[in-house]
Design a protein around this nucleic acid. Structure first.
Lengths: 225, 225
DNA sequence: GTCTATATCATGATAGAC
DNA sequence: GTCTATCATGATATAGAC
């Protein structure tokens, strides 16, 4: 479980840091824990990364670079196939969230550990991490928002942005969750087992997201302003 | 903004702790910050609450006791009005999530500050806090799940539990967000201003949640087990 | 109940030998 | 690149006077 895959010191630190930040949060993880579990010297983090802040940024960059490029590639392909017509909303949603979720099956790209770290961090209070993620995400977010605007010309843009945000939340929580899910809902679903859990999470979440995105528009109370 | 409403030392500590835990997280907030901003002595927290862990538990208990009782009262009333028939899903969702969101307008019950704290904490890694919240929430969660099972007899229970979980995520993120929203989406929605933001968030989120809850069921890939 | 002073410990970071 | 040793700081918690 806690096996060491990577012999390179730098990569080993990143692997362990990713797992510990996921499990205990940024503030809750010390450099001594990281270097201890990685089997490297305490000074190695500062030598290789400069600081704890730079370390977690590198933890994210290592995964997000590929993820966001892959999202762009998928959307490029969808738009090429559509040949000038708007891409179907469900395909756009899958390109953004499906691509993310399918990372969980790819241990070489961080797998479930990175997904849970990302899900938790998006609501975490450390300001510099959120600022960093916002910067890393900006280009791809803008691109996908534009695609959704074209795909849903009858829906006000403000509504689309909000619903994008709600979809992010549902997804973050779903991937951050696992044990939080069990805690909060205390479920015992009969036929569920951990093996096919992820196979089923993706279509489940996708159905929910599309349902929310395509829901009837809200009726605002006329009493205000 | 940072005005002190409460002259009672104990309450003043709780107010400040609520705000600082929201802004900087549990690990990121020190007792020195709390007592400093509250204008009380450093030893006061340990005198009144025993420890930092007990303090944050009391921060939550103070708000959640009322919230969960209110949710139960609303559901009681809905079920009485339905007279044996299942309650409409949208009403159940509003009883759970609407009651929560309307706390934001009630500064005496923590308002937006508490909501954002709650939203962030639900994905935060501190284990003892999640365990505490799971315990505090268990009764009301079970009650609402049962109501949804009755309201949606044709939907598999596993699906309902998952979708409840997704709804929790979308809501947590929506209330935790505000500035995170602005960071991630970098929006400039024209007619939006802060005054009616909350008035409109509730119907917006409700439409999304109901749309997700009532979405067509997912088609699982038959290739797996 | 409130204060000062302090005990005890863990943290991030670095200097300098090898 | 890796190590030991250490610094400076800030953390939670408590003892004991008032």
């Amino acid at each position: 479980m806690a096996e060491v895959r990577n012999t390179d010191t730098r990569e080993r630190i990143l692997d362990v840091a990713e797992r510990l930040f996921m499990a205990h949060g940024y503030d809750g993880t010390s450099m001594r824990q990281i270097t201890g579990e990685a089997g490297v010297n305490l000074a190695a983090v500062n030598y290789h990364f400069g600081s704890k802040e730079s370390l977690i940024q590198e933890v994210f960059r290592r995964r997000l670079d590929w993820l966001n490029e892959e999202r762009m590639r998928v959307l490029d392909r969808l738009e090429a196939e559509a040949g000038g017509q708007p891409v179907k909303p469900s395909l756009i949603v899958d390109a953004f969230f499906g691509t993310l979720l399918r990372m969980a099956e790819d241990d070489a790209r961080g797998g479930m550990t990175f997904l849970r770290l990302l899900g938790r961090t998006l609501t975490e209070p450390s300001e510099f991490i959120r600022a960093f993620l916002a910067h890393e995400y900006k280009v791809v977010m803008d691109r996908f928002k534009e695609a959704l605007f074209r795909a849903l010309p009858d829906v006000p843009k403000a509504e689309i942005v909000w619903r994008f945000h709600f979809m992010l939340g549902a997804t973050s929580y779903a991937i951050a969750g696992t044990d939080a899910l069990r805690l909060v809902t205390d479920w015992q679903i009969e036929e569920e087992d951990s093996v096919d859990r992820l196979d089923r999470l993706v279509p489940r979440l996708m159905s929910f997201l599309i349902g929310g995105l395509r829901a009837p528009l809200p009726q605002f109370d006329q009493s205000g302003r």
